[in-house]
Simulated assay, not measured.
Amino acid sequence: MDANQTDFENPFAMDADCENCAELCGARDRVVHGYGDVGAEFLVVGTGPTEAAERNGVPFTGAGGGGERVQSIFADLGFVRSAPDAAEPDVQNLFFTNLTRCRHPDREPTDREVDTCEPFLNAEIRMINPQIIVPVGDRPLRELAVEYTTRRPDSFDVDAEHATTIRGRGFELVPMKEPSEMSDAEADAFCDHMRENVLSRDYRQTKGRQSR
């Protein structure tokens, strides 16, 4: 991690009391911003916090919403050094975040809520400047495709794009299926693709890090 980073949780000190979406303010328990290494070359983007992630205040944590599955996959790849059920995982070269920062207990995020949260995600992408973005699920893949690729959003299907590499503007996308819908074979395929096609080549650029 960068030498000047003091905390993994919401390291950019984004608004923890955000009230931009009136329908969510009374329904949520807390705002869940990004978590991880601010100098990361790998950024993982989900749709929104699960119940467990909201409870922990950390994206992609806890059982029931696939957090442990994602943690386990990245532990196998060497990015997570703690147990998959850790509420505050020990990560290196990795940052977890979501399209939206608040959870409604009864429904998925609306398009307006995704649009309202976009500046948070855009700021994280600009400040982290990742080399690889992993969109987890169809919605993050399509949202990122609009902004960062030249392909039409409706040309993407996460089932077909899972465990492949898509060239974006300034970085690459490596899509992952929703962990709750991913078979063991598909999880293995994602890890194999990362090892053989991403980690095996020189994707890195110098970004002024002092240590990791």
Rank of each mutant, 00 (worst) to 15 (best):
F8W: 09
F12T: 07
M14P: 00
D15C: 05
D15W: 00
A16K: 13
C18S: 12
C18G: 00
E23C: 14
L24W: 05
D29S: 14
D37V: 07
V38C: 10
A40K: 00
E41G: 10
L43A: 07
V44G: 03
T50R: 01
T50W: 07
T61R: 00
G62A: 05
E68G: 04
R69M: 10
V70C: 00
Q71R: 04
I73R: 00
F79N: 01
A87H: 07
E88L: 10
T97P: 02
N98D: 14
R103A: 02
E118H: 11
L121C: 04
R126L: 12
N129F: 01
V136R: 03
R139K: 10
P140Q: 08
P140Y: 07
R142K: 15
A145N: 11
S155I: 06
F156N: 00
D157R: 09
H162D: 06
I166L: 12
I166Q: 05
P175A: 01
M176P: 00
M176W: 00
K177P: 03
K177M: 12
E186A: 14
E186T: 08
V198T: 09
Y203A: 03
Y203P: 04
T206H: 13
K207M: 09
G208C: 05
R209E: 13
S211A: 14
R212F: 14
R212Y: 14
